[in-house]
């Protein structure tokens, strides 16, 4: 039973990280119909910034909680700045070009960012400081759930709640929904579409940075390549749930996380990624628009 619960909670933890990253994909896709291939790199840059700032503060002799807060904030600020800049450089000039062009530009951006971090920092794995403290009250359950799992689950829940409120009830959220429905109509009713798009990238990047910080602290090491596989998995999660749908991304993230966790626990750990992609292929064969996605009729 404990083994099952262990797998269950580690699946939930994994799933919530996927969900955090998948939200960035799904929001950007919902608004401009682009797979932001460089999104995984934003997550990686968030984790790296957190690592650098945290190490800096440790050397300066700060204590645990302050390090967590400051490096977390730095990660979010920098991820947002990168997301904003990437959109301005690589996607905005291509907004009216054929579909393949921005996708290829995004792949180029992703390769560029990976190598930029590798050259400026290192290609080795770096140990990530254990930023999340161990709570005493979690001691009795430590067989199947750790403190960092709890923190990750709670943070994800709060982030998603805030996001939902933001999208449902604020002016910007309404503008985002309008732009997602019909960009030209949104422009006609006076919405500054460029601002909405920039804002979407920023929100997505902040969520990715939170995910990056949490998972890096949970796993304990990072390198420049983590963004690639996490990005693909998160995209898989977004597609599973139905790309463009926000609850779908969350649901897809959890399904993917649990599937991976149980498959590696009960079947074989060598094929962890194969299960993820296999699941994606199956879903796409039987339900190409994802679990919660609406199938769109193409108009001529």
């Amino acid at each position: 039973m404990n083994y099952f619960l262990d797998l269950f909670f580690s699946g939930l933890t994994r799933g919530s990280i996927y969900a955090l990253i998948a939200l960035g994909y799904t929001m950007v896709y919902g608004i401009i119909g682009l797979i932001n291939f460089a999104h995984g790199e934003i997550y990686m840059i968030g984790a790296f910034t957190a690592l650098i700032i945290a190490s800096l503060l440790t050397v300066l002799g700060m204590n645990g909680m302050a390090i967590l807060v400051i490096s977390g904030l730095a990660a979010m600020v920098y991820a947002a700045a990168y997301g904003y800049t990437i959109e301005k450089i690589a996607y905005k000039p291509l907004r009216n070009s054929p579909r393949l062009a921005p996708l290829i530009s995004a792949i180029g951006m992703s390769i560029f960012l990976q190598n930029y971090v590798m050259l400026a920092q290192t290609s080795d794995f770096l140990p990530f400081p254990d930023l999340i403290p161990n709570f005493a009250f979690m001691e009795p359950y430590s067989d199947f759930i750790g403190s960092s799992d709890l923190v990750i689950l709670l943070t994800t829940a709060v982030a998603m709640l805030l996001l939902t409120i933001m999208i449902k009830y604020t002016r910007m959220g309404r503008a985002m929904r309008a732009t997602a429905q019909d960009m030209q109509m949104a422009m006609l009713v006076g919405i500054d579409v460029n601002r909405v798009i920039s804002f979407t990238f920023i929100i997505g990047s902040v969520l990715a940075a939170i995910g990056g910080l949490l998972i890096a602290s949970h796993v304990g090491q990072i390198n420049f390549y983590i963004g690639f596989i996490a990005g693909i998995k998160a995209f898989t999660a977004a597609v599973l749930g139905g790309i463009g749908s926000i609850p779908g991304a969350v649901l897809g993230g959890f399904i993917l996380g649990l599937t991976e966790s149980f498959a590696t626990g009960y079947v074989s750990s060598d094929y962890e990624d194969v299960f993820a992609f296999g699941l994606l292929v199956l879903i796409l064969i039987f339900r190409p628009s994802g679990i919660l996605g609406r199938s769109e009729n193409q108009k001529v």
Partner: peptide
């Protein structure tokens, strides 16, 4: 076969997954 019904972007990601599956196997 599985990707026949998919549109451009989905196709890209499924082919990517397929490539990774072959390599992992």
């Amino acid at each position: 076969f599985p990707v026949l019904r998919l549109r451009g972007d989905y196709l890209a990601i499924v082919t990517l997954g397929f490539g990774e599956i072959i390599r992992l196997i």
